[in-house]
């Protein structure tokens, strides 16, 4: 029994088929770690490749991530230790800003790359970011802003996180946010898009 059926079901964005294929593989005695790496993450790597060359569009990437997540729910109890061990990320849109599409995209991509993500949603005050990161021992806090007028709040939030004394790293993103701005406000990282955010987060936690 291979993991091909799981891989194929993700490539076809069929949540139910992924769940069924993962269950069948478990029953057939396939090593859960192989189901995860070759089936679920293997398919998401291919999705990422196809997206980067422009063959897949954003909705397809999201649907694949959802299908992968459905499979993850089934396999999770069978995995030893943590769920891939890539680190915990707290993410949210800064206070005063209600926009969340970009943030959701980053959140989903990080989850499908094996990060554990706590998504605090929109309009998140600085202390909520800090409190959640502290309680869950997060490695990274990701801040999002769409409005040019809420970018200043982003700076204040990064400041507050630094002052809190937590060892957590900060990453920022959103349409008006640039690498230069990220440096200006003292954030540890900046990503242009969701794919870049995942790569950056991996590097940030490895450093």
């Amino acid at each position: 029994m291979s993991t091909q059926a799981i891989y194929d079901a993700i490539m076809e964005f069929e949540d139910d088929d992924v769940v069924e294929a993962v269950k069948e593989a478990i029953e057939a005695g396939v090593d859960p770690q192989i189901i995860l790496n070759e089936g679920l993450i293997g398919a998401m790597d291919e999705v990422g490749r196809l997206f980067s060359i422009g063959d897949l569009y954003v909705p397809e990437m999201l649907m694949a991530a959802n299908a992968m997540k459905a499979g993850m729910q089934v396999i999770k109890p069978y995995l030893k230790g943590d769920d891939g061990g890539k680190g915990l990320v707290v993410i949210g849109t800064v206070e005063g800003d209600l926009h969340d599409i970009g943030k959701n995209l980053v959140s989903m991509m990080m989850e499908s790359a094996g990060f554990e993500v706590i998504d605090l949603g929109i309009d998140v005050p600085a202390d909520k970011f800090i409190e959640t990161a502290k309680t869950n021992n997060a490695g990274i806090i990701c801040l999002s802003a769409l409005l040019t007028t809420t970018m200043t709040t982003m700076g204040e939030t990064v400041d507050a996180i630094k002052k809190s004394g937590l060892g957590v790293k900060t990453m920022v993103g959103g349409a008006p946010v640039t690498e230069e701005f990220a440096k200006e406000i003292g954030a540890d990282g900046f990503a242009e898009d969701a794919g870049e955010a995942v790569v950056f987060a991996r590097n940030l936690l490895a450093s």
Partner: peptide, 9 residues
Amino acid sequence: VADLRTGNY
């Protein structure tokens, strides 16, 4: 209409 190749505005 979003450019769904990238999600860009």
